[in-house]
Design a protein around this nucleic acid. Structure first.
Length: 824
DNA sequence: AGCACGCCGACT
DNA sequence: GTCGGCGTGCTC
């Protein structure tokens, strides 16, 4: 290997802006390469998995380098598209490469802190070991799952790393085994004939086995199970199935294998069994879909991104499928993005029915082993069973594509595409457009209710715009009815949170054996408890929010930090024992419904009832099969589900969405109501939507009734322009955090002042957000609004510079500052 | 991030 | 006199 390649710059999974330079030891020079994972020591007792970003021969001036310990990969697992994409994400969303690395790889491909060390059993002492080394080996031989910390404890030494390292060099221990193979592929064993025997040959085998009755029986049983004589291609027979059918032991099967009659082979087991699915080909498009698809094709000739604005049930999915097919024909990969909650078996099965095992699914409820499997599969790309179509959520933009032709972002308006909590705070839709650009691929955004920004981009010609406003099979849009709950309350007609109109309509539906969906954008039982006499409300001790009451486990829970306590029976403030629950969460609605309709089959769908892996699918399945009459849920119920028998959708409180203090509240309320309404009325008859509200005259409610996206859009656009918001301006939210409230406030004032000197009126704040304390950290925000046409990177550079100035001040150095670019 | 180092209060 | 609280600084 080249003598000059001595150093490697490594990305470590840390929120630090720089790369770390390590030296490449002689014996690893042939292995270490850009894009491979390596294990490096960091600090005095930690190991990290890092990614090699550069290799060079420039020795660092200010420090001496440590050696790379091992190289984990035979081939690079990060390709150059990904490196470019990572750089863009880190730059645009103001995060470190380490954070991007953490977000991009499934945990099974990373290794943090707790590196396991194990003794090599084959190791025989050739060299002299020091006393401590012997001691360490001894510990390792007698216990499992040992990491540096436990070693230190067991040996009583402060730091065993140098000894471990030297043992590693001598080959006495290994640390990489568990890293390379942290998971096992799910495999299943099958049996087949060892070669393509003719019928007479098989007959010979059977006669030759007449002294080995059990073996003969087994062979016959195999022929029977595989329908060898009846089917063109023998059916698959699993070892398990065969052994069970004859009640024989494995050894008998083994002797047949040894005689070269049968053989055992393994096949990777997919999460969803494909053996039964027959690929059914494409469905023909109707005339509207045809027009839309040819417009999409022609727009793609000039533009890299096209918005498909298609009303609910207009058959967007079929259009996607046709476009995917075209890409597969030219050998390109396709990424199909969906928001987390919309990724249902319905869609998966539809895609699988057309593209079979070319479809891979990437989802947060998959365990890590499954994610690693998918990652590796995409990575091998050209092999026969590599996925060509990936159906996935936000994080699938980080998969190792090398040949993307098209990215579809379905339900592009969904705010779950924006990552908030750990950095990088990226938006998968926007990132997709950049990713597509890297691959010289196209992006198709699809939705019934485009985000204002997206529609603006389409209207101004930045994106192509294709409208599909005809529901398929000429289904009618649902009839929307408003219930004025202010009026009903005044007249004392409300039954708990149900208006007389809603009650009456629900009764009719249940009589007609039709299904109902009720929507309430609030989980839990009731939003808060309140003391009847003094008005005291229990709050979270760590966050500035009231605690939500969950009845099923009788707990008060903080939805921000998950703090939970038993509800107090008496008021902590005045000692009164009358604590009253206020407001309605999905849980309480469910309970009250059971009271009103004891014969109806009712279920609830929210975060709490869908935590388990298949819980969501089970609920959907039950509802589809009409094992349920009423489904109560949060926004989960509005996502891309197609049910045939839903004749009524009830929105219990439209105002809670409308009154949310955010510039996007109206837009989001419209989207939510329009999407939920889209669930009503399928196939047979026109559905009904009932919206309960205190403000029936609200313009957004009017837009929803008239199904008038365009006027909602133009009203909102005018407001955005007037109040300086996207799409005319770009927003960057600056958050300051500290345990000391006084200190953050002061810091925010100082930072605001210095920023205002540069940006003038474009700086808003400082402002305490609605929830100004989370996990005992006080939070203050500053908002920067910059003109769309000005350079965002320059603004970001200034922000960084000013934030660093602030941190250089003695008093403020422990303030945490972070940026959220294009916040939601 | 996470870990060591270091400097102050309540305990044998 | 020490144990351990968290505030600060460094990691190639």
């Amino acid at each position: 290997m080249n003598k000059t390649t001595e150093f490697a710059d490594i990305i470590l999974p840390l929120p630090l802006a720089q790369l770390f330079t390590y030296s490449i030891p002689e014996e690893l020079k042939a292995d270490v390469a850009i894009g491979k994972r390596v294990v490096v020591p960091f600090g005095s007792k930690k190991f990290y998995t890092g990614i090699v970003k550069h290799i060079h021969n420039i020795p660092p001036k200010d420090y001496s380098t440590k050696d790379i310990l091992t190289c984990l990969d035979e081939y690079p697992i990060i390709n150059s598209f990904q490196f470019n994409f990572w750089d863009w994400i880190a730059q645009y969303y103001q995060s470190t490469l380490g954070d991007v690395f953490k977000a991009a790889l499934p945990a099974g491909l990373k290794l943090e802190s707790q590196t396991k060390i194990s003794a090599n059993e084959e190791f025989r002492t050739k060299e002299v070991l020091s006393k401590t080394e012997e001691q360490i080996l001894n510990v390792l031989k007698h216990s499992k799952d040992v990491n540096i910390a436990t070693l230190n404890q067991a040996t009583g030494l402060k730091n065993t790393l140098p000894q471990v390292k030297s043992l590693l060099e001598k080959g006495a221990v290994s640390i990489e085994e568990q890293i390379i193979n942290p998971y096992k592929e799910k495999k299943k064993e099958f049996v087949r004939l060892a070669s393509d025997y003719s019928e007479s040959e098989i007959g010979d085998f059977i006669t030759s086995l007449k002294r080995a009755k059990k073996q003969q029986e087994t062979l016959l049983s195999y022929l029977n199970l595989s329908k060898h004589y009846f089917e063109e291609i023998a059916l698959k027979v699993s070892v398990f199935e065969l052994l069970k059918s004859t009640d024989i032991s494995r050894t008998i099967l083994k002797s047949l294998v040894e005689k070269n009659i049968l053989e055992i082979y393994q096949e990777k087991l997919d999460r969803i069994d494909l053996s039964e699915t027959e690929t059914s080909g494409l469905k023909a498009l109707n005339e509207y879909q045809e027009t839309a698809i040819s417009k999409i094709r022609s727009d793609f000739k000039e533009k890299n991104c096209v918005l498909l604005h298609g009303v609910t049930s207009s058959g967007k999915t079929e259009i996607y499928i046709h476009l995917i097919q075209e890409q597969l024909e030219v050998g390109k990969q396709v990424l199909y993005l969906l928001p987390e909650i919309a990724l249902t078996t319905q869609i998966i099965n539809r895609l699988r029915s057309v593209f079979g095992n070319k479809v891979g699914v990437y989802h947060s409820k998959f365990n890590d082993a499954e994610r690693v499997e998918i990652y590796n599969n995409i990575h091998q790309n050209n092999t026969a069973n590599a996925y060509q179509v990936i159906l996935g959520v936000r994080s699938s933009v980080f998969l190792p594509f090398q040949n993307l032709g098209l990215i579809i972002v379905d339900e592009e308006h969904e705010n779950t595409y924006k990552q908030y909590d750990p950095a990088p705070r990226y938006h998968a839709r926007d990132a997709s457009i950049y990713l597509a650009h890297l691959h010289q691929a196209k992006t198709l955004l699809g939705t019934a209710t485009p985000a204002i920004e997206t529609y603006y981009n389409a209207k101004t010609g930045k994106y192509g715009l294709v409208e599909l406003l005809q529901r398929h099979q000429n289904l009618e849009m649902p009839e929307i009815i408003i219930a004025d709950i202010k009026e009903a309350k005044r007249k004392k007609q409300m039954k708990s949170m149900f208006s007389p109109e809603l009650m009456q309509m629900m009764e009719t539906c249940l009589e007609n054996k039709e299904q109902i969906i009720l929507f309430q954008n609030r989980r839990g039982y009731s939003p808060y408890l309140e003391c009847k006499s003094c008005g005291w409300v229990p709050h979270c001790p760590n966050c500035a929010v009231s605690l939500t009451y969950h009845r099923y486990n009788n707990q008060l829970v903080c939805h921000y930090c998950a703090h939970s306590v038993h509800p107090p029976s008496t008021c902590e403030h005045c000692g009164s024992n009358e604590m009253e629950d206020k407001g309605f969460g999905t849980e309480k609605i469910e309970e009250e419904l059971i009271g009103f309709f004891p014969n109806a089959r009712i279920a609830r769908m929210d975060l709490d009832t869908t935590r388990k892996k298949m819980a969501y699918e089970k609920l959907i399945y039950k509802f589809e099969n009409h094992e349920l009459d009423i489904l109560v849920g949060t926004q989960m119920v509005s996502k891309g589900l197609d049910f045939d028998n839903v004749s009524l959708v009830g929105i219990l409180n439209a105002d809670s969405m409308l009154n949310y203090p955010d510039y996007r509240a109206y837009e989001r309320s419209y989207q939510m109501m329009a999407q939920v309404s889209g669930r009503a009325g399928r196939k047979k008859k026109r559905g009904k939507v009932l919206i309960q509200t205190y403000t029936p005259e609200h313009p957004i409610i009017k837009n929803v009734i008239e199904n008038d996206y365009i006027s909602m859009y133009s009203n909102q656009l005018a407001e955005r322009k007037e109040y300086i918001y996207p799409p005319y301006y770009r927003l960057i939210n600056i958050t300051l955090k500290h345990k000391n409230q006084n200190l953050v406030n002061k810091a925010a004032v100082v930072l605001t002042k210095s920023l205002r000197k540069i940006f003038g009126i474009r700086i808003l704040g400082p402002q305490a957000p609605v929830i100004n304390r989370i996990q005992n950290f006080h939070i203050v925000t500053i908002l920067l609004k910059i003109e769309k046409k000005s350079s965002p990177s320059k603004a970001k550079w200034i922000l960084n510079q000013q934030a660093n100035y602030l941190k250089e001040m003695e008093a403020f150095k422990s303030i945490q500052i972070n940026f959220d670019v294009d916040p939601m």
